[in-house]
């Protein structure tokens, strides 16, 4: 069975149906990119996988276990999430990253080792002692990525991690994602930037108005799309 499996997931917020029966299988170790215009339900999809919210109907399986309100805290321990506009704690960069290891009860020297490795990955070792609230948007996003990677999750969820960032920061983050994926982590990257999907992903999925239109190998997705809407989306004809 797939590492993450969604079965006919529906979710409605007040008067608007955001997800209209979404099904998808995400394989262990793959880097899948979910693309689609703003408001198509990508963020909601990630939140449901992280157990921050729950579907109205349909099912979600993580590593073969059905996600419920009761087991969400337990399943989430293997999941790292990077929000679109991350919130950092009013503490040093180091402490922000070390936080989740502290309450996992790791010994101090192991914490230091892991935090340094995570900061290295996003090239922030120089700023370890800086107050996280003084960072630029790109640096803050990199700290958030390090914070999500440091406890060695099996699955990483990213919500538009490079929106509004300059190329230097985008390169560092993409590099870190490739590195994570090389370490057998499953990565779900939500983006509206199809070029980023093309650069990074093994597979690409198009979510449009709450419906999963198409999921394909990256190469096929861009060159031989099955659905005409995918064609229009990658050609930039789909106005959104």
């Amino acid at each position: 069975m797939a590492y993450v499996a969604l079965r006919s997931v529906r979710k409605r917020y007040s008067d608007k149906e955001i997800l209209k029966g979404v099904s998808i299988d995400i394989q262990r170790g793959e880097l899948i990119s979910i693309v689609g215009p703003s408001g198509s339900g990508k963020t909601t999809l990630l939140r449901l996988i992280d157990g921050l919210d729950f579907p109205d109907s349909g099912e979600i399986f993580i590593d073969g276990i059905k996600l419920t309100m009761e087991n969400a805290p337990k399943l989430r321990k293997k999941v790292g999430m990077v929000f679109q506009n991350p919130v950092l704690f009013d503490a040093s960069v180091y402490d922000n990253v070390a936080f989740s290891l502290k309450f996992r009860g790791l010994p101090d020297d192991l914490i230091r080792q892991r935090v340094e490795a995570a900061l290295n990955l996003v090239m922030l070792n120089d700023l370890a002692k800086r107050s996280a609230l003084t960072l630029s948007g790109g640096e803050a996003q990199r700290v958030a990525l390090a914070r999500a990677l440091v406890y060695d999750p099996e699955l990483i969820l990213l919500d538009e991690p490079t929106a509004n960032l300059d190329p230097a920061n985008v390169l560092i983050i993409e590099g870190a994602l490739r590195e994570a994926n090389l370490q057998e982590k499953t990565v779900v990257l939500v983006t509206h930037n199809i070029f980023q999907a093309k650069r990074l992903a093994n597979r690409v999925a198009l979510l449009l108005e709450g419906e999963m239109v198409e999921v394909q190998e990256t190469e096929s997705f861009f060159n031989r799309p099955l659905d005409p809407r995918t064609r229009r989306f990658i050609d930039g004809d789909l106005v959104y």
């Binding site: 992280d50 921050l52 805290p73 989430r76 321990k77 999941v79 790292g80 999430m81 929000f83 506009n85 991350p86 919130v87 704690f89 009013d90 503490a91 936080f99 989740s100 502290k102 309450f103 914070r147 999500a148 406890y151």
Partner: peptide, 26 residues
């Protein structure tokens, strides 16, 4: 406080006590 703070703590699997500690600290 920023409502996303609580969600961030939740997604990091912070235990309730630690969550309270950070939110009060913030």
């Amino acid at each position: 406080l920023d409502q996303r703070l609580k969600e961030t703590l939740q997604s990091l699997s912070a235990p309730k006590l630690w969550e309270a500690f950070i939110l009060l600290r913030e």
